[in-house]
Design a protein around this nucleic acid. Structure first.
Lengths: 154, 154
DNA sequence: TCACTATAATTTGCGTAGCTAATTATTAGT
DNA sequence: ACTAATAATTAGCTACGCAAATTATAGTGA
């Protein structure tokens, strides 16, 4: 179906704005928490699923174990995370949040999340429906239905 | 206005999917072109505005000049970009695309862009209107109206 | 039981990116 | 002519991300 090129451009520009906004919130969260994006991301996953084996955490982050070792090293150095050799399988290591780690992650700004929740609440029902339908269609257009939503690390 | 919590969750999940989809296209583009995200991003900006002073390029990338020096070093090493000392101000350096650079950037997958354009074209007018309105509102919710859209570097 | 293979985490070594602070060269102002 | 400001670069640091090699443990088959 033929469409106004300007309208299409507007949509793409808005998508770019959204993408950048999320990135900006991410950076902001890093400054506030003193943690890098990947570090915060690991903590968020652990907050949901800890304790986790290092390899499982790596899988959930779509990273190689070798990479996650470094991230966990730094988080352990900050006392936010603990390593425990598994008893059943002494090759494996269980990563868990420390009390301070749990504390940090609970206070970590939920990225756009908070602003999003508030903003969405302030829309009228019709507006909200537009957002709902529009986002749904956008996911389809991007072929992103298959994607399991991950935390917007920030 | 009170809303169905599940509906709100769905919207946020879809936003996450969109964010991840863009990131995945980015990674894909990196593999295809053999260039990293920042390198491709610099090229795309240059494709629009070259020649540019290094400091101006840095400004447009929201990076420090010291960082961009490294990126340009690598692009120059690959023969995609040229450095020319400015005649008017011999402190300044003009960065320009080489012919091969122009070639590479023109063939670089326009990220989601191509898929986006096709996908959007296939929507009905009503669906497209939903996307248009929904994205517009989302930008508002995120407070992202002020953002100048940058290429989705990938 | 012994040998072999597979698996989990780690180490090593490399490249890229991002920053600040210091340095060099040039321009502009007084 | 001297000084201050500006443009790019260099030096030195941290963090990611990877592949390949290493170490320790589990499991399996003869």
């Amino acid at each position: 179906m033929r469409k106004n090129a300007e309208a299409v451009s507007r949509v793409i520009d808005n998508l770019r704005r959204i993408f950048q906004a999320i990135n900006e919130y991410s950076k902001n969260a890093e400054q506030i928490t003193g943690l890098t994006g990947p570090q915060l991301w690991a903590l968020k996953i652990l907050a949901i699923a800890a304790p986790l084996r290092l390899s499982d955490l790596a899988r959930q982050m779509y990273l190689r174990p070798a990479t996650v070792v470094g991230i966990i090293d730094r988080l352990e150095g900050k006392g936010l995370v603990t390593r425990t050799r598994s008893v059943q399988d002494r090759r494996a290591v269980d990563i868990d949040l420390s009390d301070t780690g749990r504390n940090v992650v609970s206070k970590a700004p939920e990225v756009a999340q908070a602003m999003l929740l508030n903003g969405l609440e302030e829309l009228t029902h019709d507006q909200f429906s537009s957002v709902e339908d529009g986002m749904q269609l956008m996911v389809k257009v991007l072929g992103a239905e298959h994607i399991t939503p991950q935390p917007l690390h920030g």
